[in-house]
Design a protein around this nucleic acid. Structure first.
Length: 343
DNA sequence: AAGGTCATCAACCGCCCTTCC
DNA sequence: TGGAAGGGCGGTTGATGACCT
């Protein structure tokens, strides 16, 4: 019994609100055993015969008791066979409902809370590649469910498309994502990485840790992916430096050593635009690097050259072309400030 | 304070694919 | 081989809470 409770605790640890005390757990377990062994006692049964069709299925939000029953049943019998589970567990739910509840909420490794910039970036990246393949995208975001990702896309991303008055599937919107949103997310990741590395430096000032080992700035959800943060100015190649010093480059007045190059490696390399372009403080060069000007800590250079999804954006080479720049700078720029709402 | 509006997200629905008999 | 059942997936809905007037 204690072992079962320990198992139960480990499972519900991430769903603190559902955690029962040992006594409550035992009571719930007894309740479950009674309902399982003596299903006829269920008040919801009607008629003289006990058949599945006689069970009045519950709908709507799950109760704590139902959650407990489901957790206990899966603790004993494992996942799968959802219809059988629904019949035998005492739950008056469909198998599908049980499965959904378990996968989206009760499963121990389900992450709660807001999506991190890294996760948002992966979603944007993979959605541009695969479209609404939510479950496939979710496979690359450990702990996140397809439902959660789908909701994120519909409530946050599509909202922006509505504000911009453009079709969410349009090239323009994808440009907006690629040219503003993704760099902004990368910028946030960089900020987080920098602040954490700064904190580390402060903490371990005697340790000489190269920034490019800074690690773990982001636990990249993509199995093949990695986030590499290099020392900035040193790592910029000649071309990049030239681009940065270009006349349209809104370069900050100071050139601190805070700038970094963030390389987000994705599984495959794709076609990239052939001509440089820039939007205000963000520029993109043919090598597939985003440069984000951030006056608070100088420039960050984002190397997205290996972002696979870019290749699936139709006509990448011309998506953000000059003709688009005016539009981007104009009406979209007015609206893009709203994107701050998204993070 | 109350009513209206909007955003979020858990849950449901329906379709489709796979497996089994 | 075809039908039934199980399960997965994407789209949609509705409850709820936050925010606004």
């Amino acid at each position: 019994m204690l072992e079962l409770y320990r198992l139960y605790k480990s499972w519900t640890g991430c769903v603190a609100s559902t955690l029962l005390s040992p006594s409550a757990f035992i009571i719930s377990l007894c309740l479950w055993v009674c309902q399982t062994r003596f299903p006829m006692s269920s008040p919801s049964k009607s008629g003289s015969s006990y058949g599945e069709e006689d069970i009045e299925l519950r709908r709507g939000p799950w109760t704590l008791e139902e959650d407990t029953l489901l957790i206990h049943y899966i603790a004993l019998h494992g996942e799968g066979r959802w219809n059988l589970l629904a019949r035998c567990s005492g739950l008056k739910r469909t198998g599908k409902s049980c499965r959904l509840r378990w996968l989206n909420y009760l499963k121990p490794d389900v992450k709660r809370g807001n999506l991190t910039p890294e996760e948002q970036l992966v979603i944007l990246e993979l959605h541009s590649k695969w479209g609404n393949r939510w479950s496939k995208i979710a496979q690359h975001l450990p702990g996140r469910t397809d439902n959660e990702i789908k909701n994120y896309w519909r409530t946050r991303v599509q909202k922006q498309a509505r504000h911009l008055k453009i079709d969410v599937n349009s090239t323009r919107f994808r440009d907006a994502i690629r040219c503003f949103w993704m760099p902004r997310l990368l910028q946030k990741m960089e900020e987080a990485a920098y602040s954490s590395s700064s904190a580390r430096e402060t903490q371990t000032s005697s340790m000489s840790v190269p920034l490019n080992q800074a690690p773990q700035a982001s636990p990249d959800p993509l199995s093949q992916g990695s986030l590499i943060i290099n020392e900035p100015m040193k790592s910029l190649n000649h071309e990049e430096k030239n681009l940065r010093s270009g006349e349209n480059w809104n370069s900050p007045s100071t050139s601190s050593s805070h700038s970094m190059k963030v390389t987000h490696q994705f599984p495959q390399i794709s076609e990239l635009p052939t001509s440089p372009y820039e939007f205000g403080s963000i520029a993109y060069n043919p090598k597939g690097c985003y440069y984000v000007d951030n006056s608070s800590y100088d420039i960050g250079a984002f190397d997205l050259s290996s972002m696979s999804a870019m290749g699936d954006l139709d006509n990448s080479a011309s998506n953000c072309h000059v003709a688009e720049i005016n539009w981007v700078r104009g009406e979209m720029a007015d609206n893009l400030c709203n994107m701050e709402d998204l993070w």
